[in-house]
Nucleic acid binder design. Sequence first.
DNA 1: TTGAATTAAGACATTTTTATCTTATTTAAA
DNA 2: TTTAAATAAGATAAAAATGTCTTAATTCAA
Lengths: 141, 141
Amino acid sequence: MFSLTCEHGIRSLIYLAKRDDSSNFISIREISNDLDIPFHFLTKVLQKLTEAGIIESSRGAKGGIRFLKKPEMIKLSEIVFAIDGEKTFSKCLIGLNKCDEQNPCVLHDLWMEPKRTVTSFLSKSTLNDLIIRLNNDKTRI
Amino acid sequence: MFSLTCEHGIRSLIYLAKRDDSSNFISIREISNDLDIPFHFLTKVLQKLTEAGIIESSRGAKGGIRFLKKPEMIKLSEIVFAIDGEKTFSKCLIGLNKCDEQNPCVLHDLWMEPKRTVTSFLSKSTLNDLIIRLNNDKTRI
DNA sequence: TTGAATTAAGACATTTTTATCTTATTTAAA
DNA sequence: TTTAAATAAGATAAAAATGTCTTAATTCAA
Ligand code: FES
Ligand code: FES
């Protein structure tokens, strides 16, 4: 559903939201260790989120990343769009060049409703909505 | 959402269902030309569908592929599972090793409903449900 | 001011996906 | 029986995604 890169990005931000004291930077090395994501791969994933203005980074001692936006304002859809691209869920299911009412493929009409529930899930869910679930100690990142 | 391979598979079967006279084989070269899919790539895609028992193939003159099952019995989910794998929509959204009520990730609960609408769309839609939409001449494969 | 810690950036390697090419096998019909 | 037509299968190539390594730049604190 999402690229591996995107999965790493989502998990990192959930981790960050859980740990966030909103003033200090959290080191990428630490995220990498705790979430078991290859360090150098992760730095590149997080650079995308930095470019997207979701987080900011600082080099050097005490460096790392922290939120630019508040976790209650960061929607899952922003993260997915920043990493996998804006068109992630608006492309035609069978890869035709356009996807709209004027140019429907055979799947188009039937796909609209499930598509709506997916995109609404992504655009309604914020990082805060997600981390509260960590109160249940079964729940994993 | 689907791999390109899977998109090609779905489009080919829709094309086949539209053309099917159920007794003759339709040549892969023809499908390749009409749907603008690279021929040798397409033969491999269709081999997966043959292995899955959805279609059968015949070599030689007058060869090609035809349905083994009736199009009204072939669900979109079968095609997707045959090509992209059984777990295409049952894997954890953020890539954790398990996805069930006993091992939920932070997204799990919120994902269940949109996931249900997607999987139900795939398991309810048969090839026949799709090709009737081709009566509308706007509709494309 | 220097050194240690840390991310940025770019080169490189590996794996997976997508695409092409060649040869073998099968089928139908002349 | 021979030939043309077609898919099967396997080798190879190209592109994209994933993963690693090295060097540069930056930051903090001793
Ligand atoms: S045109 Fe194919 S899903 Fe909309
Ligand atoms: S455990 Fe992650 S979606 Fe179910």
